[in-house]
Design a binder for these strands. Structure first.
Lengths: 182, 182
DNA sequence: ACCTGAACACCGTTCAAGT
DNA sequence: ACCTGAACACCGTTCAAGT
């Protein structure tokens, strides 16, 4: 990548992060380009789709979340590892309002720039779930997709002002439905 | 209302129903006016906001849902009444893709045309919940807003293609978390 | 009273022309 | 190789002018 291109790329990513933090995942692409001081075409050259920008924005967080699944698997009980990871998922999406809808859509769209990351996250969660199931700590009739659905639903509630304050409570309700009473 | 106005109103409602059925609650207002064969201003005269159109569209269904809460309260056990009503809520929103987000927002916006209906629905659900709680059939640490949040989350999942097929299963999981083991 | 649609201020996305 | 921004095809919403 040419030096000027790299500079634009980095700057667009930085501005994109700020704009998404302010306006959410449906932020105006035009606004990102405008505030970065580049032509709209430059934005599209570096990030051909909104999902490509979101993916670049969340790359690091996705990797951290995947890494934390491995750490939790070693350091915590199956039940604690699972709930800890679910909480981390919700925290990540909450700091990027609206991104959960893009992530959900990406699961069904192999061509989405977010597809691979979301499939990886589902696999991380599934791994923790299966471990808890193997130890008899989680109910056996759900799979990784069910788990992703439940955490996505909580993430969505977290983005709805009337419900956001109750997500901690509802998290406990759902977590205790997943985990088998000891 | 003048006869020509009434005709436009009824026709817009009919076309609006069809367009929302096809494109969901975020359907193009312009498209509704276009397909109804009236000027865009006529649409806005009869339905000043998107929520006003949705409210008119759903009026009958909302009333049926409220009525069914009363019926269930008399005819069924507290637990069956509650789950039956929750299923009806999900079915209603599922036949109007995307409307759950508008309804959720309306709860926090007293000026929304959907506000009163959503508050009524929450009250209907709360009534069935409180009855189940009084009989010891539902856990006591949730209220009408929690219940609305849970059913809204399921309704949202029902609109997400990767998860729609699992909503019945997840409904059972959440219902059994609300209901106290007999 | 009611209807119309031009007008305004936005979008997302593409692509010919420039450097 | 990369950048630019006009151009296209849309939006939601308002409001002066017509019937």
């Amino acid at each position: 990548m040419r030096a000027d291109a790299k500079k634009n790329y980095d700057h667009l990513l930085e501005i994109g992060r700020a704009v998404v933090a302010e306006q959410g995942a449906e932020a105006s692409m035009r606004d990102v380009a405008r505030r970065a001081g580049v032509g709209i075409g430059t934005l599209y050259r570096h990030f051909p789709t909104r999902e490509a920008l979101l993916e670049a924005l969340l790359r690091e967080s996705f990797d951290q979340l995947t890494a934390s699944a491995s750490t939790l698997e070693i350091s915590s009980s199956p039940a604690d590892a699972l709930t800890g990871w679910l909480r981390a998922m919700i925290a990540l999406t909450h700091s990027h309002r609206g991104v959960i809808a893009s992530m959900t859509a990406a699961i069904a769209s192999p061509d989405s720039a977010l597809h691979a990351s979301c499939v990886m996250l589902r696999a991380s969660g599934a791994r923790l779930l299966e471990r808890a199931q193997a130890e008899g700590q989680a109910r056996g009739d759900i799979d990784g997709t069910d788990l992703l659905a439940l955490v996505s639903a909580l993430a969505w509630l977290n983005d709805q002002p009337p419900f956001a304050a109750r997500v901690d409570h509802l998290f406990d309700l759902i977590a205790s439905a997943i985990l088998v009473r000891k």
